[in-house]
Design a protein around this nucleic acid. Structure first.
Lengths: 228, 228
DNA sequence: CTATATCAGATCCTATACGATATTATATTT
DNA sequence: AAATATAATATCGTATAGGATCTGATATAG
C-alpha cells in the first residue's frame, strides 16, 4: 500500500510521521528531478490517486510548497509548478545574496570554532568525491544539495537565524539546479569553496568577506550564460 | 449567516472570493488586535464553529499564516499564535534590516521619479494626520500599517522584488506593533521619515543610504527598551 | 473557413464523518 | 498529602462526498 510506503520514511522521533510530510517529500523530489516540468499543472486528485492518499494532505503539502515559492496557486484553477526564472528574478536574487552572504561569512569567521570548522570541512569534502553518479541528473542534484548544505552551514555559524531562514526559504539551490543543466560549474565552485575554507582556517573575517563576494559574483556570471 | 459575512468582504474581481481568504483576514485581525494573545492555542474546530465554516478552509488559512511566521504548528498538538519575540530574534531582525534597507534606499534614490516621489509623500502624510484614533490600540495599529506601507513603497521603487517579498514576509511590523505597546515612538519616527524624503527629493543616493541606516538604528534602540 | 454557443468531463473548493492522539480530570496507591 | 494510573473529553489528522467552476471539444451560425 502506497500509504504505508509514504509513512515509512524516516520516523526519527517518537511521533508518527504525518502523511503530509511524505507527500511533501514526494512532490519535492518530482520537482527536483524535473519529472514535473516548470509551469506544469499539478492536479490535486491525480496526485491523490497516484500516492494512494486523500486530497486533504495533498492540499496541505502544496500549500507548504507554495510558501517556499516552488509551486503557484490560482483560485479555482489550481496548483502548478513555478515557472523557470526570468533573468530579472535571477539578478535580483544574486543582488540580494551579495548583500547578505559576504557579511555572513565575515561573522562566521569571527565566531569560528574548531568543531564548526571541522563540520565545514566535511561538508566541502562531500561535494568533491562520493560514489560515481549514475547520470547527469543525479550528479547535479547531489551537487546542488551539498552546495546548499555548505552555504547553510556558514549561515548557521554566523548565528543570525533570521538571515538563515530567509535564505533557505528562497530555495535558491533548487532553482539553480535547474539552470545548471545548461552550463558547467562544478570545478570552479569547488576551488572557490576551498578558498573560503582557507579564510576560515586563518580566522580572517575580511578575507572571508571578500572571498564570499567573489564566489557569489562568479557563480552568478557562470549561470548567467543559461539565459543566453 | 456568518458564512455570507465572511464572503462579503471585498470581492473586487469577477471571481468569487474564497472562504479561505475571509478566514485568513479574520484570524489576521484577531492576532493584530491581540484578541488572540501571543502563544495562545488556536483550536481548528472552535474557529470553524465561530466563523460558521468547515475545518478545511481554516486549515488552509492557518497554513498560510504559518508560512508568514504568525502562527506555529506542532504535529498532533495543533496551532498556536507565535510567541512574543525574544531579544535575540529582535536583534537578528534588525541586523538583517541594516544590511538590506539602507542599500534599498540608495537604489530607490537612484531610480526615483516624480510620480514615485509623490506616492511616497502621500504615504508619509498618512502617518502624521488622519481622523482621530478612538483608542490606543487602533492608533498604534494604524501607525504600524502606515509605516509598513512607507517602507514597502521604498523597496518597490528600489526595484528588487526578491528583497521586497523577503522583507514583507517577515511581517516585521505586526510584531513591532506588539512591542510598541510598551514604548512611545511615533514623533521621532515621523521626523526621520521626513529626513528620508528630503534625501529622495534631492536625488541623493548616499544621503538616503545614511539616513535610512540612522533611522533603523534609532528604531531599534527605541524598541529595545521593551525588553527592559 | 472562422467565430460563437453549447455541452460533457475534469478539477477545484467546501462540508462532514471517523479513527488516532493528546490533554485534563478523577481515582487509586504509597 | 503527593504521585502515579486510569478514564473521559477535546482536538487533530485523514478520508470521502457533493456542489461550483473551469477547460476543452463539438456543433452551429455567419
Amino acid at each position: 500500500m502506497t500509504n504505508a510506503a509514504a509513512r515509512e520514511g524516516r520516523a526519527t522521533g517518537i511521533r508518527p510521521m504525518s502523511v503530509v510530510d511524505g507527500v511533501y517529500d514526494s512532490i519535492y523530489h518530482r520537482l527536483m528531478s524535473l519529472e514535473i516540468a516548470p509551469g506544469a499543472r499539478i492536479p490535486i486528485d491525480v496526485l491523490a490517486r497516484e500516492l494512494g492518499v486523500s486530497q486533504t494532505p495533498i492540499r496541505e503539502a502544496l500549500s507548504r510548497l507554495e510558501r517556499e515559492g516552488l509551486v503557484r496557486k490560482e483560485h479555482l484553477i489550481g496548483y502548478s509548478a513555478a515557472p523557470q526564472w526570468t533573468r530579472k528574478q535571477f539578478e535580483d536574487l544574486y543582488a540580494f545574496r551579495l548583500l547578505i552572504e559576504p557579511e555572513a561569512a565575515r561573522l562566521a569567521a569571527i565566531n569560528m570554532t574548531p568543531e564548526a570548522l571541522q563540520q565545514l570541512e566535511n561538508s566541502a569534502a562531500d561535494m568533491g568525491h562520493g560514489e560515481a553518479p549514475v547520470d547527469r541528473n543525479t550528479r547535479y542534484s547531489r551537487f546542488a544539495r551539498a552546495d546548499a548544505q555548505f552555504h547553510d552551514a556558514i549561515l548557521k555559524i554566523a548565528g543570525n537565524d533570521v538571515i538563515r531562514s530567509t535564505l533557505s526559504n528562497q530555495h535558491v539551490h533548487l532553482h539553480i539546479f535547474r539552470l545548471m543543466f545548461h552550463t558547467r560549474v562544478t570545478q570552479e565552485a569547488l576551488e572557490e569553496h576551498e578558498n573560503l575554507l582557507a579564510a576560515f582556517r586563518a580566522r580572517d573575517p575580511q578575507g572571508a568577506y571578500d572571498t564570499m563576494r567573489v564566489h557569489i559574483e562568479r557563480s552568478r556570471d557562470r549561470l548567467l550564460s543559461a539565459f543566453e
